[in-house]
Design a protein around this nucleic acid. Sequence first.
DNA 1: TTTTATTGATTGAGCAGTCAATTAAAAATA
DNA 2: TATTTTTAATTGACTGCTCAATCAATAAAA
Lengths: 194, 194
Amino acid sequence: MPKRGMQPIRRQELVIAAVEAIHERGLNGVTMGDIAKRAGVSPALAHHYFGSKDELLSATMRHLLGEFAFAARRRLVDAKDPRARVDAILEACFAPEQFSPAVTSAWLAFYMQSIHDKAAARLLAIYLKRLEANLRHDLRPLVGDGASALARGIAAMIDGLWLHAALPTLHRSPGEALGILRDYVDGRLAVART
Amino acid sequence: MPKRGMQPIRRQELVIAAVEAIHERGLNGVTMGDIAKRAGVSPALAHHYFGSKDELLSATMRHLLGEFAFAARRRLVDAKDPRARVDAILEACFAPEQFSPAVTSAWLAFYMQSIHDKAAARLLAIYLKRLEANLRHDLRPLVGDGASALARGIAAMIDGLWLHAALPTLHRSPGEALGILRDYVDGRLAVART
DNA sequence: TTTTATTGATTGAGCAGTCAATTAAAAATA
DNA sequence: TATTTTTAATTGACTGCTCAATCAATAAAA
């Protein structure tokens, strides 16, 4: 039952299925069969559209990076002062779209992957550098020289909170995570004003 | 060339080799062959002493948990006031023994594993709960009701800093990580004293 | 008739786990 | 002390399974 123009639809479906499959089985535990089954197609079709498992996983990673960039940009446009811009970034990190269990653990799986995979490391480094640069830029007027260290601290805490949120045993909520992050930032800003 | 009494020695060697192999190949990418080769024995011997790959990896996880508990206890004995006790825990997390690239990425690999593996999740939950309970206990006299949230924040930041330290692209140092953590704690303590 | 979507069957590699055979130390026996 | 026996360490060869990747065949739309 072939309908024309399926390519972009199937690619999208497979990428989304990959996120969920990674959540269930882990990045290396997942098989093309898992992903294809979830997308409702045959494993052969996944190969047809992506050429290889590596390519499909790589596309999945780019998809996540793109979604986050979009969420952050959307929140940044109507944030005027530096403090609001910092908050926009924090909110983007814990918005429901970004923060479903499946999306979070796929993100973290790619973090782990980039420990020993150069290609993944390159993609992730771009994302992390940009995130820190944005934070540093907006923090500079607020804390001066401490901006760089604070940006690194915030970036680290975001990832730590994601990591803990991904562990089902701890059942942490996004709201709680945001609160902890804001307390951190407020504490540093208070010290800087002294 | 069989020498008697090799069992404990080989088990130890294999566990340490497993940590390094996990660092290079990831938890699911690693094979019994990788680990055995690094330990200088045949794959069959690894099976002989551990029965299965799962058992070897589980023993490796327990090894890491045990080493950390030891490092923390050692630093806690001569920490007198609450603030010194908090610092003892932070220092244990970033002490050179705990903080080699291989050890850090093996830790994180087990974090990821426990997203979809019940047995790993149980072990890790015990560790995390105990860490947070210790922090909370020592923070209570310093920040009162905020102790619980601050303990969670510190635990999250520790793991985030580990995660970033494991990414070779960012080349972060343990000293920097400790500085960021201490700034966080100091900021919150200053706010609490107000 | 051409092009695109789709799959079932197949291949080949890699790997966990098994087993029987080998070696040498230690213990038991003469 | 000299010997035989037992026990532990160790491995190479083998088995069976899973999975990524390929390909030829089919079906429908254009």
